[in-house]
């Protein structure tokens, strides 16, 4: 039975995180530091140490999830703890800082940490929602089925184009070869159809953008209007219909790739910012004691 990572072991780590928050808030409430609360009081140092250890441990998740041989807890358990303790971290650090901010390296570390956590929250949301949305978008079928269908359309288009002569065949073949969604993660995330096609314009061949198979369909419509031969016209309209179907299929695939890219792309914020956070944390700690 599949268990969501949020309810893992009856939300055990949620309670751990809530306990951490409760203890921190209570300590902050009862502690009278004899000055405005800040990182330099006894409680400030304590919460700072807890926060720094948490950050290092949270970042260690990136190592643990790659250690397939490790038996130190399950990765699912680690992720569940990673999420809840990562959220608790914000409270711990805010109390550590006594809500003091400024244009300095200390607030820099806080800002980076906040961005990491926000991106992590985004990651949790997409992990929980997007697999189902992807499945719904594909009508429950696996992606390979859509690709098989696409290849089938391409094959049939090529066969029809062949009967229409070399120009058409070359046109369709170039369209097939240069069909592309993405290809980079960013373009997939943006839902970019970067397909191209070779079109003949006045004796010369031009590489033309073919997003949504628009250029192909336009060219076919043009050819159809110029052609008087009934057989040619019917072949062209068959080709148009095939490419129209291909367009629909590409939209579906594009949406699928976009959803998948979303599942991946937040890590491009989360992971590098985590590394930057470790650097900023080090700078924060060193500079605080450098000018003690």
């Amino acid at each position: 039975m599949h268990e969501s990572l949020l309810v893992f072991r009856k939300r055990f780590y949620l309670w751990v995180a809530l306990l951490l928050v409760a203890v921190s808030v209570a300590a902050y409430w009862y502690h009278d530091p004899q000055e405005p609360p800040n990182g330099g009081t006894l409680l400030g140092y304590t919460l700072g140490t807890v926060g720094a250890l948490l950050i290092v441990w949270l970042a260690w998740f990136g190592v643990r999830k790659r250690s397939y041989a490790s038996t130190l807890g399950t990765v699912q358990g680690w992720l569940s703890a990673h999420i809840y303790l990562g959220l608790a971290l914000i409270v711990v650090v805010l109390l550590h800082a006594g809500f003091q901010f400024g244009w300095n390296v200390h607030t820099l570390a806080f800002v980076i940490m906040t961005l990491v956590i926000i991106s992590g929250v985004f990651g949790v949301i997409v992990y929980l929602r997007y697999p189902e949305r992807m499945s719904r978008n594909r009508g429950g079928a696996p992606r390979s089925e859509l690709i098989d269908e696409l290849e089938d359309i391409d094959r049939r288009s090529l066969r029809v184009a062949e009967s229409l002569g070399a120009d058409f065949h070359e046109f369709v073949a170039s369209g097939v070869q240069r069909t592309q969604l993405g290809p980079t993660l960013w373009k997939r995330f943006r839902g970019r159809d970067s397909s191209q096609i070779l079109l003949r314009q006045g004796g010369e061949t031009v590489i033309t953008a073919n997003a949504g198979q628009e250029a192909a369909l336009d060219w076919l419509a043009e050819q159809q209007s110029m052609s008087g031969d009934a057989e040619t016209v019917s072949a062209i309209s068959e080709l148009s219909a095939l490419i129209g179907n291909k367009r629909k299929l590409l939209r579906q695939l594009g949406a699928d790739l976009k959803l998948q890219a979303t599942l991946e792309i937040w890590l491009y914020v989360h992971v590098p910012l985590t590394v930057a956070l470790l650097g900023a944390l080090l700078v924060h700690i060193v500079t605080v004691f450098l000018y003690w």
């Binding site: 690709i147 090529l158 070869q177 993405g182 993660l185 960013w186 790739l257 491009y268």
Partner: peptide, 18 residues
């Protein structure tokens, strides 16, 4: 060559952002 590439480009994770 036509069909091979399609499968390729759909499934292989693409490298990074730009």
């Amino acid at each position: 060559a036509t069909s091979e590439h399609v499968e390729q480009s759909w499934t292989t994770p693409t490298s990074g952002i730009s």
